[in-house]
């Protein structure tokens, strides 16, 4: 497709386009389902009326002020996770690659545990602790892996080492803490959207407005990097700079999610893989990964709130839903 008289052009794949539209439609359906269901069920027509700013005050408050921010957050955070997963899997050329390999999640967990267990901090203190811990760890891993540029394999090994130490530290802190405190920390560690609302949505939306366009600018050099370092260099990509930028964006996206909702597991890992199988693309792609991530987190959040009668942390659900879906894809491919 060519826009602006050929100055901005990109390739469109028929199947990918259909899948993207399908994903969007599914996201819309799930969002509607999440808006309808709850301890106070609201008819779909009333939801639409409330969204348009009409209808009863009470219904409007529930839909627009309580449920909508959470639904939007789930979609946005899921998209952020899917994108950062795609970036890291492409960078490391490894289907197990995720922001975890740079140690971010382990570091964020350490920071949050320190805040929760030592100064019994609230939501904002915990978010700050997680952010500081995660960023410090990511910087440490990057610097330790730096030798005239960061090469994928060395980054993986250094990441494994640092993450192992931090997880050992985390396990020890959880073991030493009082049981109720440890369980509170574990709920944060699973990742949860419970209690989040409009005051979290605005900053998240603002940050994503900056990060997502930046990501899509980087999408083309990222595909060139997929061909291998030498070929990318030959086609005019500044490999070290692009790699650094991609990593920066990936970490920023993960940081955003972790600070807002805790380290929600598995979406970054499985969304790019699911998207790749759906679109049958040769490598991981950003846009389908982002939509798949959003869809997965929406579904997980609905299930976490309504499926079992108890409010579970959403992270518990993402692993189950993501895991089942990957297995389903594996089986279906076998039957074809």
């Amino acid at each position: 497709m060519r826009l602006l008289s050929g100055r901005l052009s990109f390739r469109l794949d028929g199947r990918a386009l259909v899948i993207l539209l399908l994903l969007l439609a599914l996201i819309a359906c799930l969002a509607a389902l999440s808006l309808v269901s709850g301890t106070y069920p609201i008819a779909f027509a009333d939801v639409l009326r409330a969204l348009a700013g009409k209808g009863e005050d009470m219904v409007r408050m529930i839909v627009v002020e309580w449920r909508l921010p959470r639904v939007a957050l789930a979609g946005l955070l899921g998209a952020a996770l899917g994108t950062s997963g795609a970036i890291f899997q492409s960078l490391t050329r490894n289907p197990l690659g995720s922001p975890d390999i740079i140690g971010f999640s382990a570091g964020a967990h350490t920071g949050a545990l320190m805040v929760i267990l030592m100064v019994s901090g609230g939501y904002y203190e915990t978010a700050l602790g997680a952010l500081a811990g995660g960023l410090l760890t990511a910087i440490a891993v990057y610097l330790l892996a730096w030798r005239k540029g960061v090469q994928g394999f060395r980054l993986i090994i250094v990441g494994i080492g640092v993450a192992a130490m931090l997880s050992a530290c985390n396990a020890w802190m959880i073991r030493e803490a009082e049981l109720p405190m440890a369980m509170a920390a574990a709920i944060w560690g699973a990742g949860s959207l419970n209690g989040l609302g409009v005051e979290q949505l605005l900053p998240v939306a603002l940050v994503l407005c900056v990060l997502l366009p930046l990501t899509f600018v980087l999408a083309r050099p990222m595909r060139q990097l997929d061909l291998g370092e030498d070929r990318a260099r030959a086609s005019g990509v500044d490999v070290n700079r692009i790699r650094g930028l991609l990593m920066l964006v990936g970490v920023a996206l993960t940081a955003l999610v972790t600070a807002t909702a805790g380290p929600i597991a598995f979406i970054a890992l499985c969304a790019p893989q699911i998207a790749r199988r759906l679109t049958r693309s040769p490598g991981v792609a950003l846009c389908p990964s982002a939509l798949t991530g959003g869809l997965l987190l929406l579904a997980a959040d609905w299930a976490a709130q309504h499926a079992f009668g108890v409010q579970l942390p959403v992270g518990v659900m993402t692993v189950s839903i993501g895991g089942i879906y990957v297995l389903f894809l594996l089986l279906r491919e076998g039957r074809k």
Binding site: V319, G323, L327
Partner: peptide, 12 residues
């Protein structure tokens, strides 16, 4: 992939 997916599910 099967190992990771099943592990994740059981972990959840």
């Amino acid at each position: 992939l099967a190992g990771v997916a099943l592990s994740a599910m059981l972990g959840g």
